[in-house]
Simulated assay, not measured.
Amino acid sequence: MLTCPICSAPLDSADNGVVCPAGHRFDRARQGYLNLLPVQHKNSRDPGDNQAMVEARRDFLNAGHYAPVARRLAELAAERAPAHWLDIGCGEGYYTAQIAQSLPDADGYALDISREAVKRACKRDPNITWLIASMARVPLPDASMQFIASVFSPLDWAEAKRLLSPGGGLMRVGPTNDHLMELRQRLYDEVRDYSDDKHLALVPEGMSLQHSETLRFTLTLADGQARANLLAMTPHGWRASAERRANVIEQAEPFEVTVSMRYDYFVLN
């Protein structure tokens, strides 16, 4: 089902990789992923999250701190029962693997622009087709997906619409204004409010919001390493001052913080 990122022709298996009729060939890495991000489509030498960010997120998520977020996403995916699904901006694959567990008979695809992220994601589930690719040029055919997940990820709405088959949908998961509020209050003199529904203005014609819900819970981070990982995997890890970050990490007592996620499901009419 994959398409060539250079000429958009179908890709067929060939030895340890894939090739299109024009001869564009892409080898499979020893970890199991395919790199379908040509150098001319890169904005930097190593785009996407770096190794430190990826490992901080992996360790934080593996500790189960956001398990309710992933569990609810998997439930919502299972309710839609797609035959083919895609996690667009999959990171190191934590949410992807749980979607796959909820859809054992479906074909799953996952991509991220970060090589460091996809290298680690491959270890979670070998049955998923893991790709290094641009979410603005997804190497999959038109109308080939019945379900797309986008979790904490930038999104090219036009590309998502292109990929969806009629009746298929996109599940967008992102933070609300209350997310990590206690942490933000500790890190900044002034906490900026933001609209957690501004993405609704970006939805292209032909797609409509079918379902929306918010998941909220209180997270207790008892050790400094967990707090350090949380900071490292968010923009607060470089926006906040080193002194404020250190105060959060080094405090003796457990740190309680609100997790607040919004799930919006958009259907292609």
Rank of each mutant, 00 (worst) to 15 (best):
W238I: 02
D49I: 04
L200M: 13
R184D: 03
K119G: 01
D49A: 07
R120V: 00
T129M: 12
R137H: 15
E79D: 15
A100Q: 09
A100M: 09
L76G: 08
H65S: 09
Y194C: 06
R115F: 02
E116T: 01
H211T: 04
F266Y: 12
V191C: 00
V151D: 05
M233W: 11
Q101G: 13
P235W: 07
L76C: 01
N247T: 14
L103S: 11
G17V: 03
A97S: 12
A110R: 05
L209P: 06
Y194K: 09
T96K: 11
L37G: 08
V54S: 07
S13Y: 12
Q210G: 14
A83M: 10
P204W: 12
I128Y: 09
R120H: 13
F26R: 05
Y94C: 02
I249K: 10
A121H: 09
D178T: 10
L221E: 09
K198L: 12
L37S: 10
S260N: 00
Y263D: 04
P254A: 05
A106F: 11
A158M: 08
R120M: 07
F217K: 01
Y33P: 00
A100S: 14
P5A: 04
N177R: 12
D264G: 08
R28N: 07
R162P: 05
K119C: 08
R137N: 15
R30Q: 13
D107C: 13
D107M: 13
G174C: 04
Q251Y: 05
Y109A: 04
V54K: 03
G93Q: 08
D178H: 14
R245S: 08
I148W: 00
D15T: 09
L230R: 02
A74M: 07
A201K: 15
R57I: 01
G89T: 03
T129L: 10
P5F: 12
V259T: 03
R244M: 07
A242C: 06
L187H: 13
S114W: 09
N62H: 13
T129E: 14
L86C: 05
P166V: 01
E182S: 00
R72H: 15
D197Q: 12
T258L: 02
K119A: 13
I99K: 04
Q146L: 00
A240T: 01
G237C: 00
P175T: 03
V118G: 04
L111S: 03
A121S: 02
C4F: 10
V203H: 03
P104E: 08
G17A: 03
R80V: 06
F147R: 04
K198C: 12
H199Q: 11
A97W: 07
D46Y: 14
E213C: 06
W85V: 06
R25N: 11
A100L: 06
N62T: 06
Y95F: 13
